[in-house]
Amino acid sequence: MKQGRFLGVFAAGVYAFLHVPLLILCAFSFNRSKFTIWEGFSLEWYRQMFADGQLGEAAWNSLVIALASTVLATAIGTLCAYGLWKKNSKWLSGSLYLSLVTPEIVTGISLLALFQWVFRYWQVQLGMHTVILAHVAFSIAYVLLVVMARLRTAEPALEDAALDLGASEWEAFRLVTLPILKPGIAAAALLAFTVSFDDYVITSLVAGVDSETLPMVLYAMARRGANPVVSAISTVIFLGFGALILLSERMQKNP
C-alpha cells in the first residue's frame, strides 16, 4: 500500500498548506512583540483592537450590512428558487448564475457606474443603503444555488398531495415545502452572511464616507504594513466564522 501512504503524506501536506498560515497568524496575535519573533503571551493587540473606535464603528457597519442583506437576499433568493423550481425562467436563472461568475471588480465598477448615473437625477449619495443594495444583489445568486440544491432533492408529489388535500398553492408552499427547505435556507443565509461580511472589492467601490466596513479598515491596515492588530482582528473573524459554522451544523443536526 505504498500509494496509499504517499496519498496520506501528500494530503497531510496540503492540509498543512491550507491551515498552518492561518494558525500561525492567530498564534502571533498573542505575541508580546510587534515583530514576528515570539516574546511571550500578551493580549495587548486585542486591547488596542477593542480600544479603536474606528474599528468598532466599521465592525458595527459590517454587521448591520451583513444582517440586512442576509435577511433580504435569503427571502428574495428562496422565493426565486421556488419559482424557478416550479418552472425555469432561462433569462432569470441565466442572469443570476452569470452574476455568480462575474469577477467582483466588474460587478463593483458596474454598480458604481449605475449609482453615479442615478445620482445625476436623484440627489442621494453613496452610503449604507448602496452597500446593502449591492450586497443583496450579489447574494441572491448564492442563496438560489443553495436552496435550489435542496429543492432538487425534494419530492414534487408532496405539493401535489397538499393541493389534493385541500391546500391552496400558497398553503402548499408555506406548510409543506418551506418547512422542508428550512435547513437549506439556514445554510443559504449563513453563506449570504459570510459573503456579505467578507466582501471588500464591491463594497469599497460603492461605500460612502459613513459606511466604512471592517474589510475596508482591515485592507487599509494590511496595506500600511505589519500590524499585530490586524492579526488580532483576523483571529476574531476566524473564530467568529468558525463558531457560526459549528452552530449551523448543530442546528442542522438537531432541528
Binding site: 401535489d160 398531495a161 393541493l163 389534493d164 388535500l165 385541500g166
Partner: peptide, 15 residues
C-alpha cells in the same frame, strides 16, 4: 384546481 375537487389521492410514493 386540485383543492376544489372532492377527490383525494393515494400517491405511488405516498408523499
Amino acid at each position: 384546481r386540485p383543492y376544489e375537487r372532492p377527490v383525494t389521492t393515494v400517491f405511488q410514493s405516498y408523499a
